Simulated scan of single mutants.
Amino acid sequence: MTRPALRGNAALPACAASLLVLASVGPADAADCALEPQGEGRVAAVIDARSFRLEDGREVRLAGIERGGTDGASGRAALSAIAGGRDVTLHGEDDTPDRYGRQGAFVFATGSEHSVQSELLRRGEALFSADTADKNCAAALAAAEGAARDAKLGIWAETSAIKNTESPGDILAAIGQFTVVEGRVLSVRQAGAMIYLNFGRNWTRDFAATISRRIVPVFENASLGPKSLENRRIRVRGIVSSRGGPRIELFRVGQIEVLGGK
Rank of each mutant, 00 (worst) to 15 (best):
V107H: 14
L121Q: 12
A140E: 06
F108Y: 15
S51F: 06
G104E: 10
V60A: 10
A45V: 04
A45G: 06
A44K: 13
D94T: 09
I82A: 04
V116G: 09
G104C: 06
L141I: 02
R76H: 08
D87H: 11
R50F: 01
F108G: 02
V88R: 13
I65R: 06
G72I: 00
V107P: 14
C137P: 02
E93Q: 15
I47H: 12
E113I: 07
D56W: 12
D131F: 12
E145V: 01
E119T: 03
L127R: 14
G72W: 01
D71H: 05
D94W: 10
F52A: 05
A144S: 12
E125P: 02
S80R: 12
C137H: 01
F52C: 01
D48R: 07
E93W: 15
G68I: 04
R122K: 06
G146F: 00
I65K: 06
G92F: 07
G124I: 00
A49V: 07
A133W: 05
D98W: 14
R76V: 03
Q103T: 15
G111S: 13
F106M: 14
T96H: 12
I82T: 02
P97R: 08
R76T: 10
E59W: 07
T110M: 15
T110I: 15
R76C: 07
S118Q: 10
G84P: 01
A44M: 09
A63G: 10
E93S: 15
R99F: 13
V60Y: 10
G124A: 04
Q103G: 07
D98T: 12
V60R: 07
A81C: 05
G69W: 03
G72M: 00
D98Q: 14
A138N: 03
G101L: 12
G84I: 02
D48H: 10
G111I: 14
L90N: 13
V116W: 05
A130F: 11
A139P: 00
L90D: 14
R99E: 13
D48L: 03
T89C: 07
A49I: 03
A83S: 10
S80A: 13
F128M: 04
K135E: 06
A126R: 10
A109F: 14
L120Y: 03
E55S: 14
R58D: 00
D94R: 10
F108V: 08
Q117H: 14
G64C: 11
G68Y: 00
V46S: 03
L90C: 14
A77P: 00
L62C: 11
